[in-house]
Amino acid sequence: MTSKRMLVILPTWVGDCVMATPVLRALRSAFPDAHILAGVGGGIDTLLAGSEWCNAVLRVRFKGTLGPFTDASLLRACRADTIVLLPNSFRTALGVRFAGATRRIGYARDGRGILLTHTIAPPTEKPFSAVDYYAQLVEKAFNITVSDRRVELIVTADETRKALSLLAGVSGAPLVLNPGANNPLKRWSAENFAKVARISMKQGQSVVVTGGPKERELVDAVVKLAPGAINLIERGVDLGGLKGVLARAACLLTNDTGPRHIAAALSTPVVTLFGPTDHRWTTLVHVQERLLLAEPFLTHDTFADQHPNACLMERIAVKDAVEAIRSIARTS
């Protein structure tokens, strides 16, 4: 299968979008002369800034009652002959159905096979890494090999300038703390993040705390409990600025959420805290990362998702987080 104009619809979550970067890199390698567009949700298109794998980034939504039909007209204007759907949703497939592409490729699930021209059977193994999940789709669809499965992002000059402004007055490469997560059950407590901050600052390490727009209260709580830590939300951090900050960080301590994947994709050391979400769903390869599991002794055929009470985030000790940071952080 070949393509002259290809549109790749990416996942809407930050972490999942990052985990799709090996697919973009592989498609560019397989189709060096094709015009490749990346369709992303509004607000996270910044993730792909600086990338050479796609010719352009297209903002899509597929939300609301009319979303699939509204976006379909936008997609038709792209004149893509091939559309690859990485998300699993029926709604996304419905929007793509009316986009005019000759080939519409995606996993056959959620009853959407009738909307696609080329369906791939999803893997049955569980847990199955999202990186491998996306890679397997394009491998089977295009008969190519996604041999390099490293996640990767580029920091632009503008994002570097934003980072320098956000880190004004910060000494050396900072320890970045990310206490938020979309699911509250995946969050280590603000008190524990603050304890790590206080210990780190006592050892001479600068500390900054980041979060999304809806996590201001959580970030404020950490900073209040750790005087001297810098609140990046107060300084106006956005996704591009966060990329620049993480690229310059000594280490990131984070729950299992988007900034983890951004830091890993920028070759920044990461300590990731896992509770009632199995780490095997989001395995990253060739990254500088230490995983701290709330329950590290589950059997191989048991998922953390199935045992939320045994995998409470508060079972992760502060001293273990401090030691993990010490073992992996890069020095200024």
Results as ranks from 00 to 15, higher is better:
200 S>I: 02
261 H>M: 06
288 Q>F: 02
268 T>Y: 03
98 F>A: 05
187 R>Q: 14
137 L>Q: 05
29 S>T: 10
125 E>F: 07
179 P>E: 08
199 I>E: 06
23 V>C: 02
8 V>K: 00
179 P>R: 06
190 A>N: 08
234 E>M: 02
285 V>M: 13
120 I>K: 07
259 P>L: 11
306 Q>M: 09
71 D>Q: 07
118 H>C: 11
8 V>M: 02
249 A>K: 00
248 R>W: 01
231 N>G: 06
331 T>E: 11
281 W>S: 04
214 K>P: 05
72 A>W: 10
158 D>I: 11
99 A>L: 06
182 N>E: 13
97 R>H: 11
131 V>L: 09
27 L>D: 04
110 D>F: 14
115 L>V: 12
159 E>T: 09
254 T>C: 15
48 L>S: 04
262 I>F: 10
62 F>Q: 08
145 T>Q: 15
332 S>F: 06
118 H>A: 14
50 G>Y: 09
148 D>G: 07
81 D>P: 10
28 R>N: 09
176 V>C: 08
118 H>L: 12
319 K>F: 04
8 V>E: 01
136 Q>D: 12
134 Y>H: 13
297 F>R: 15
21 T>C: 00
310 A>L: 15
29 S>K: 13
127 P>C: 05
79 R>S: 11
191 E>R: 13
254 T>H: 06
327 S>H: 09
115 L>A: 12
90 F>G: 01
161 R>E: 11
167 L>W: 05
313 M>Y: 09
72 A>C: 09
246 L>R: 00
60 V>H: 04
35 H>G: 01
305 D>W: 10
12 T>Y: 07
172 G>P: 03
304 A>R: 01
84 V>R: 06
270 V>G: 10
17 C>I: 00
212 G>K: 04
218 L>A: 01
180 G>P: 10
